[in-house]
Design a protein around this nucleic acid. Sequence first.
DNA 1: CAAGTACTGTAACGATCGTTGCACAACAAC
DNA 2: GTTGTTGTGCAACGATCGTTACAGTACTTG
Lengths: 206, 206
Amino acid sequence: MGRQQGFDTSAVVRSARAVFWEHGYDGASVPALERATGLGRSSLYHAFGSKRGLFDAAVTSYLDEVVRPRLQPLRAAAVAPTALAGYLTGLRAALAAAPRTPGCLLLNTATSPLGGDDAVAATVGAYRAELASALAAGVRAARPDLDAAAARHLTETLTGLVLAAFALARTDPAAATGCLDTALVACSPLGLPPAHPTRGTRSASR
Amino acid sequence: MGRQQGFDTSAVVRSARAVFWEHGYDGASVPALERATGLGRSSLYHAFGSKRGLFDAAVTSYLDEVVRPRLQPLRAAAVAPTALAGYLTGLRAALAAAPRTPGCLLLNTATSPLGGDDAVAATVGAYRAELASALAAGVRAARPDLDAAAARHLTETLTGLVLAAFALARTDPAAATGCLDTALVACSPLGLPPAHPTRGTRSASR
DNA sequence: CAAGTACTGTAACGATCGTTGCACAACAAC
DNA sequence: GTTGTTGTGCAACGATCGTTACAGTACTTG
């Protein structure tokens, strides 16, 4: 069936994803995508049709390789009581580790003009629902003492705090980790910080 | 001292601000800014130096004419106990009113590549601090029963939920208003919704 | 081997980007 | 009125944007 392509598609998408993640859709120029992927325009356009096609592939890759692996413990059949706190501390560590993090590819897209696109809006909506669903499972496992209304309230609070952390990641990483600290406090059975509101997470710097 | 300019600077900045708000910094082309303001390039560049200069003026205008007026009841010397809930319901109504809202100009900028700019990051940080400070005052007035740690925790939770609402405004207005509903529940002394978690706000549609 | 098809390199496309120079118009100061 | 300064209109700048056409290469298929 003709010549076979000389590159690994998923690796190329991963490289392109990094460019979109850091520079946004508009800011990611085709020459920059060529450099990052090591491919020429012909190959890119042949494989993905357009810049937007490559971006869509990058978003799918982001969901599959970045978002869902981190949510996996919360989406399993049996969710551990520590899975919720583990997710939040893990996310906190990830944000604190990188000196300058671009935040969340999907949230950045949602707040960009591209967020007006119906397909993008649907993807972002599905992402938020997936996150909320996973956090709900974590809340059920970590806080079986809560009734349905309280669990729902806590879930929505945590979802909002996680999204706020993503929103602040680029300009104010400290504030972003602070949001996750607040989330950790919120899901504690005590309901209040033990001594000082600033929690120490041994796996994260600062 | 020479010819005097034939336009109202603040009105021009207001028009330009709307363009930046909807299309973002990169997406706002100079021709579009010309059309919105009714000015030629010469006048724009003479008055503001560059596109970035006009954007900075638009951000200042946004803070002065959009953000702070809404926060004013929370920044007054004497804060009413209802000011906090008033802010949240007012914001909710504003998000629910417009069919398609561009969210928050500053948060959109923060999550864009421009968020990496030091000046932008500083502005966004100051904005977040101002919001958090105002919400803290509202919490003190609305919930004098809370101790310092609990008040601080509630303030950070509310700040996060407001930011999350802004982040979701463009792609999912319903989810954005949901964040504000959750915030309203969180600052209620009951701590839980009375019957159904979905609160009715008589001033807002839906 | 011959034929056909799929992938890739090079080059250019038209469009739009933000910015600048220059000539002219309008007003203040003298 | 004259001079000097400042705002505005017109036009073009070089650069970069995403996309496409075309020729050539590499491989599968018969």
